[in-house]
Amino acid sequence: MIKEKTLWIYQKMNEIRFFEEEVHRTFGKGLIPGFVHLYAGEEAVATGVMALLNDEDYITSTHRGHGHAIAKGCDIKGMMAEIMGKRDGLGGGKGGSMHVADIDKGMLGANGIVGGGFGIAAGAALTSKTLGLDHVAVCFFGDGASNEGTFHEGLNLASILDLPVIFVCENNQFGEGTPFRYASASETVAERAPAYNMPGIRVDGMDVEAVYEATKTAIERAKAGKGPTLIECDTYRHYGHFEGDEQKYKTDNDPNKDRDPITEFREKAIKNQWMTEKQAVEIEENAKKTIDEAVAFAEESPLPDISTLYTDIFA
């Protein structure tokens, strides 16, 4: 029941949102180098899936990976420091926004290569199957990545080996500045699943409960040794592809444009008495505090020592 996970989900959704809003502000102040891709708007996907995972389960993420990392339990202070390129970052400041990772939390990394995660997730699932570990792997990918050749290779391989992996497509309607409806010959990503002999489910990606229920079914199937599932979550990003994107390709008619998964879940949870108004407010305040502390921590963290440029190349 999603009811039992409501407070956790609402907490993580808020942490993600406040985190991204802070990153947006901090980037605007010039304190974050490089390229930043914000997850705001897609919180229902990361939290709906991760509510069902344990630390031992693995995920692969994307260039838009902050939300996945937070929901997977990565240390938020360490994430913020990483994104600012500081010593106390999860990767010692050496990876940055596009490479936020914490393998001890089962987070196999945000990824700068679109479509880079399909095979890696399959590999994590292969470990679980081979060693008899009852763990699953989840591959998050965007609608843009669904048109890479690696999509086909990863899904086919996972299917023929009956790997315990779940492919979660975050279809936010645009691959960078190109609409999905132009870039894909199929109307949906989910409808490709039968060709790989696996279930393909399309859910409302702005509705945590829908994501949660689909994931639950997929995990049961994976753990029963029946192989992978493809879940397509119909969602939307509130910001551009990257910070600085003029978003000229967006239109007033874009599906999900005016929806907010956090507000929707808040209303639903209170209405169903999964959460009280008071609890909601407390969670919001706590989440805001968590992020403010992370920003302060990251700003105070020093730059990495120059000698670390040469470390971590080989084991």
Binding site: G175, E176, G177, T178, P179, R181, Y182, A183, E246, K248, Y249, T251
Partner: peptide, 26 residues
């Protein structure tokens, strides 16, 4: 990829039928 950007986005088609680009490359 996105050498123009915004393919099939109606408001990027100008009155004379020519296209505006969303990105013109990243």
């Amino acid at each position: 990829t996105d050498v123009a950007g915004g393919a099939e986005v109606d408001h990027l088609v100008q009155d004379d039928g020519r296209y505006d680009d969303a990105f013109g490359g990243v």
